[in-house]
Design a protein around this nucleic acid. Sequence first.
DNA 1: CGGACCGTTCGAATAGCGGGAACAGGCTTT
DNA 2: AAAGCCTGTTCCCGCTATTCGAACGGTCCG
Lengths: 255, 255
Amino acid sequence: MASDSRHRPVETVETAFDIVDVVKAADGARITEIAAELELAKSTVHRHAKTLEARGLLVQEGDTYRISTWFLDYGIHVRNRHRLYDVARPKVDELAAETDEKVWCVIEEHGVGVHIYGAQGRHSVKTHARIGQRTHLHQFAAGKAILAHLPDERIERILDDYGLSAQTDRTITDRDELREHLETIRERGYAFNREESVIGVHAVGAPVRNESGTAIGAISVAGPANRLRGDLMTEDLPDLLLGATNEVEVNLAHS
Amino acid sequence: MASDSRHRPVETVETAFDIVDVVKAADGARITEIAAELELAKSTVHRHAKTLEARGLLVQEGDTYRISTWFLDYGIHVRNRHRLYDVARPKVDELAAETDEKVWCVIEEHGVGVHIYGAQGRHSVKTHARIGQRTHLHQFAAGKAILAHLPDERIERILDDYGLSAQTDRTITDRDELREHLETIRERGYAFNREESVIGVHAVGAPVRNESGTAIGAISVAGPANRLRGDLMTEDLPDLLLGATNEVEVNLAHS
DNA sequence: CGGACCGTTCGAATAGCGGGAACAGGCTTT
DNA sequence: AAAGCCTGTTCCCGCTATTCGAACGGTCCG
């Protein structure tokens, strides 16, 4: 498990995914457009596009290529096979019904938080998150709950790798401040997010840990700042959340 | 738009996706396992795996590699950007609430049907379909509804490409029989599925067409055969469905 | 009618992919 | 303990397959 050994990547594969990324970002792109963006010969891009299209990974509409629904198949497969999904999903639905707010299940992967499932109550606001979204762990409640319950060396490594970019002016960007913050989260067992990712939005997040105590994901409740405050925010929601994550942890251990 | 011109695929990219496919199918695989399966040298697989892992597309857990949630990000992106999704989604939810059965939104891509969104009523059975699932168009109600409303040359081409494989003993496998069947669907505007994809499951599907009358997708209602029969199946559900698809078509035209 | 742009095809040169052999480490077996 | 066998990993070399640029054949626009 060598960490950062000098490994030479397969460049052809990289360009293939570069093309996919450009097509994704542009929400459909043409051959010359892609070639210009990536500074490749048109013929090269053409051959790649045709290869990906033959595999069904890109779809050609006229002269523009789009990403195909094969990625949806792959993605849903990943989600369904994840240990947390089956167990956490019903709990997330339950919490959404009880709190009438937006509830998310987030997992950690490669040092970032990934939203794998969300449910909303009747009166919940539409958050800006969506399924599959990747967010730096220090920027939101669920992420901080996860980060606080990782081994120290992993925490430091993640901070080294991604830094502490700000999402709003409330986002924690100072490393020492974050370390203290994480210590507090570790002590009480859950995390708050007060407009640190979206202005006007508060959230509470609690970690889901495995047998050895390491976080593998988290569940969070998010809602408008003027509704999530006072005892509801500091007492009631944490209680609900901890009850849910505790149950999830038990179910995880017996599956 | 040359159809089947002699184009040489980029083989390196193909092997990369072969590896991804093996990892997906095996639900996590090790280097030697993949190498054996694809008859490649261990060193080759290793280099590819490390490349994909560096890009975040594979995740390494110990010595086994898994597909990462990046595919979820790509996949959800594809779905959200699809014209039909935003428009059809609320209608699908509505139909599920009204009928108390499983309702699916299916789109056509590359000649196959892709389930992009599903909603279920309280009493609906769990169908065997899942988001992202790809099904041959002749095998189910939504697919037949789409197939019937494609240009003739596309229909023939799709049948040529994929054949008429059976899912149950009721699946239509005779080409002439299917042609007649499609003609009937075209006349009345919607399709039935009586245990043609899953034994014990019936369904009704209606196409969503664009301005020129070509189907771009379909919506279907599915449920147990003993519940979906008689006038409910032949009158009420088709009415509901046509009302919904009609509305979707109008909304599509004005977006 | 002509120019400018597109996607597409072709051939040729070389960069980089793939393979095999050797290494290091962990686990089981003797 | 130690020998054996299985990993994943690294290295380097040869040959193939990728890349590029130029030329072709469309189509759209002026």
